[in-house]
Computed example of a mutant assay.
Amino acid sequence: MNFLLLLVGIGAVIVYLSVIIVQQGTVAVITVFGKYARVLRPGLNFKIPFIEVIYRRISIQNRSVELAFQAITADQANVNFKAMLVYSVLNQEEETIKNVAFKFIDEASFMQALIRTIEGSIRSFVATKRQSEILALRSEIIEHVKAQLDTLLESWGYHLTDLQLNDIAFDEVIMRSMAQVVASSNLKAAAENEGQALLITKTKAAEAEGNAIQISAEAEKKASQLRGQGVALFREEVARGMAESAKVMTEAKLDASLILFSIWTEAIKHFAEKGQGNVIFLDGSTEGMDKTMKQLLAVEKMNTNADSSGIITPPPAPGRR
C-alpha cells in the first residue's frame, strides 16, 4: 500500500513537472543540458522533466522605456532630452526568438545597450548642429536614430516601434537669452507693422486731402467761370438796353441825356434806401454825363453797323467813374 502511494506521488510530481503553461503574449525557450532545444508557444505545453529546462520566458508584446540625457551642440550649448522609446520582439520566428534569448545575458544588459545606443546616436547628431537649429530638427533627429538602430535591433531580434522626443530644453541661461531674442524679434516686428500702418494711414489721409483740394479747386474754378460769364452777360444786357433807349430817344428827337438823368436819380434813390452808412462818390458833372452819353452813342452806332453787316459784336461796357 505504501509503495502504491509512493508511485502515485512520484507520478503526480512527474506530471506536474511535465506540464508547462505559457501565457498569451509570451513564449518560452527550452534548453536540454544548457543547449537550445525548442520554443513553447502560448497555451498548454509539455516537457521532459529534469532534462528539458525553461531557459527564459520572452514577452512578444510592446514595451516602453523613458530616457533622460544630455547632449552638446557644435557651439557648446547643453541640450536636455526627454524621450520615450517603444520597442518589441521583431516576430515569433524561431531564429528571432533565439537571438532575443541568447544575444544578451539578461534583460538588464539589453536595456543598457539599447539606451546607450540611442543616446549616442542622438549626441552624435546634435554635435553637428548649432543651438539655434535644434528645436526645428525634432523629426530629423528621430529619423536619424531610427536609420541607425533598425539594422542593429533586428540583429538582436527586436524592432523599434516608435521614438518620441517629448522635451528638448536648454540650460536656464540659454533659455533666458532665447526668450530675449524672441521678445526683441516680436517687438521689432510689431514696430515695423505699426510703422507700416501709420504710413498707410498718413498716405490715405494725404490722398484724401489732395482729392478734396482738387475737387474744391475745380468747383471754385467752375464758379469763377460762371460768375465771370454772369457779369459779362449783365454788362452786355445793360449796354444793349441803354443803347436801345438812346436810339429811341434820338428817333423821338429828345435829348438822350434824360436817360443818364433817370439812371442817376434811380441810383441815388437806391443808395438812400439800401445804404448802410457808406460814403460813395458819384460823378454828376456835366462833363461826366456828356462822356457817358458819347459812349452810349458809340454803342448804338456799333449795334447799327452790326445789324447792317449781319455780324453781332458785343458792345463794350460803359465807363464808370
Results as ranks from 00 to 15, higher is better:
Ala183Ile: 02
Glu192Cys: 00
Pro49Glu: 04
Pro42Phe: 10
Phe69Ser: 05
Val299Asp: 11
Ile10Pro: 00
Glu287Cys: 00
Met175Asp: 10
Leu226Ile: 12
Lys188Trp: 09
Ala217Pro: 01
Asp162Ser: 11
Val19Leu: 14
Met242Ser: 06
Met242Tyr: 08
Trp264Thr: 09
Gly157Ala: 04
Phe102Pro: 01
Lys188Met: 05
Asp307Trp: 11
Thr265Cys: 01
Leu149Lys: 06
Ala191Phe: 09
Glu266His: 11
Gly195Tyr: 11
Met1Asn: 05
Leu152Glu: 09
Val145Met: 02
Leu297Gln: 13
Ala267Val: 12
Glu207Tyr: 10
Leu5Gln: 12
Asn80His: 15
Ile54Arg: 11
Leu85Gly: 01
Phe33Lys: 11
Glu192Pro: 00
Thr203Val: 02
Phe33Gln: 11
Ser132His: 13
Asp106Ala: 05
Asn99Ile: 00
Ser224Phe: 12
Gln196Tyr: 13
Val65Gln: 12
Met302Gln: 14
Lys294Arg: 13
Phe50Glu: 01
Gln196Val: 11
His144Ser: 15
Pro49Cys: 05
Leu114Phe: 14
Leu114Asn: 06
Leu187Gly: 02
Gly288Glu: 08
Asn2Glu: 13
Ile58Asp: 04
Gln225Pro: 00
Asn78Asp: 13
Ile20Ser: 10
Ala71Asn: 08
Ser257Asn: 12
Ile58Met: 02
Phe33Ile: 04
Ala28His: 11
Leu90Val: 02
Asn305Trp: 08
Ser64Gln: 14
Thr292Gln: 08
His159Trp: 06
Lys222Ile: 13
Leu40Arg: 04
Ile118Trp: 07
Leu114Asp: 06
Asp171Phe: 02
Phe50Pro: 01
Gln196Gly: 01
Thr304His: 12
Gln61Pro: 00
Asn91Thr: 03
Lys247Ile: 09
Lys103Asn: 14
Gly310Lys: 09
Ala306Arg: 08
Leu258Cys: 02
Leu297Arg: 05
Asn166Tyr: 08
Ser124Tyr: 09
Thr250Glu: 14
Ile168Ser: 06
Ser245Gly: 10
Phe46Ser: 10
Glu119Gln: 15
Glu300Cys: 09
Lys269Ile: 07
Glu220Ser: 13
Arg41Gly: 01
Glu220Cys: 03
Ile259Met: 06
Asp171Val: 02
His144Met: 03
Leu297Asp: 04
Met249Ser: 15
Tyr158Asn: 03
Tyr158Cys: 00
Ala101Leu: 02
Tyr16Lys: 09
Gly11Thr: 13
Tyr36Val: 01
Gln131Met: 12
Asp162Ile: 01
Ala101Trp: 06
Asp150Pro: 00
Val279Asp: 05
Val181Ile: 12
Lys103Glu: 04
Val89Glu: 04
Glu266Val: 08
Gly157Met: 04
Ser177Phe: 08
Phe110Tyr: 14
Ala108Trp: 05
Phe261Glu: 12
Ala219Gly: 07
Ile10Glu: 08
Leu163Val: 07
Glu209Val: 07
Thr31Ala: 09
Phe271Val: 08
Gln112Pro: 00
Ile51Gly: 01
Phe110Ser: 04
Ala127Val: 08
Gln131Pro: 01
Ser124Lys: 11
